[in-house]
């Protein structure tokens, strides 16, 4: 098992944070978001604002308007819960802020629903200039953070996991902003996944392959702007599309793919993700219950294919 993407994020910040424009804000969760890794190395550019998330987002906007590249970090649910601040101080202002939400999804486990980011993508996805990134493993996370420091201009929401992730990519991986990665080629079915459940999608794809169903597997790290071309191209070849995410199927990846398909390539679609509030339990038990582990995703796809 590889690293949690929050851990990869902390490492990447400490590595690429040598850029003096980088400033990190955290709201009393730096040990959890791993922004503390940066704070230990660059204490002069690290500010723990305490539990003042709304103020933190506005402060990040002010820093950005004066030339800094601020990352403001908290749990996905808390940071995007300050939607009015994101909407006006960051989005409408077009401030060069990186909003970082860790502990995404029901996979955080025992802490229960109030700490689980399940609607965070949905809240920020409607803002016209908001970029949304969700990496699926260590290499992707490091590359995304490097990109956000060295290249990107404009507001960003970066969604990260608490749980450890299996490696999806191997050394030599190159991150291409806005482009889907094809992890497996197939022509019978398209599976589009993002973030921590890309591993579940790959499990299902391999199991389906053993039964003679060849899935085209796309990993979407850039949820907005989404790679319309790759989605349409794959859907046109396979005629069946499944999305997999640890987020509400309303407003997240599933919705984004549905929008693309219904406008450009109407295709049968199954959205796998959360459809209710979360709850406490071990991450394994929760993924079992909500059908987000490999066997769960496989079972949902198989019953849909049979229907």
């Amino acid at each position: 098992m590889g690293k949690a993407s929050r851990a990869s994020f902390g490492m990447a910040l400490a590595e690429f944070g040598t850029d003096p424009r980088v400033v990190i804000l955290d709201a009393d969760l730096s040990k959890s978001t791993k922004s503390a890794d940066f704070g230990n190395k660059f204490p002069d550019r690290f500010f723990n604002v305490g539990i003042t998330e709304a103020g933190m987002i506005g402060t990040a906007a002010g820093l950005a308007l004066c030339g800094k590249i601020p990352f403001c970090c908290s749990f996905a649910c808390f940071v995007t819960g300050r939607y009015d601040q994101i909407r006006v101080s960051v989005g409408y202002t077009n401030a060069n802020v990186r909003i970082v939400g860790t502990h995404a999804g029901v996979a955080i486990g025992e802490d229960g629903y109030s700490q689980q980011g399940l609607e965070d993508i949905a809240t920020v996805r409607s803002l016209p200039n908001m970029t949304i990134l969700q990496p699926a493993d260590h290499l992707e996370t490091v590359a995304a953070v490097k990109y956000l420091i060295q290249e990107h201009q404009g507001p960003v929401y970066l969604r990260l996991t608490r749980q450890n992730l299996n490696e999806v990519h191997s050394e030599g991986y190159t991150f291409q902003f806005g482009q889907a990665d094809r992890l497996q080629e197939g022509s019978d079915l398209t599976i589009i996944a993002t973030g921590g459940v890309v591993g579940s999608a790959l499990y299902a794809a391999k199991a389906l392959a053993e039964k003679g169903v060849q899935a085209d597997v796309l990993n979407i790290h850039t949820i907005r702007p989404i790679d319309r071309e790759s989605i349409v191209e794959s859907a046109a070849r396979t005629g069946r599309v499944v999305t997999v995410e640890d987020h509400s199927i309303v407003g997240g990846l599933g919705s984004a793919v549905a929008e693309v398909l219904s406008e450009e390539q109407p295709t049968r679609l199954l959205r796998i993700g959360m459809t209710e509030y979360g709850e406490s339990g071990s991450p394994e038990d929760l993924y079992q219950k909500f059908g987000l582990n490999g066997p769960g995703v496989l079972a949902k796809i198989e019953s849909w294919l049979e229907a």
Binding site: A54, G58, A61, G62, C66
Partner: peptide, 10 residues
């Protein structure tokens, strides 16, 4: 005021 705080920090 939060934005002003960020500007003053910068």
């Amino acid at each position: 005021l939060s934005i002003a705080v960020g500007m003053a920090m910068a």
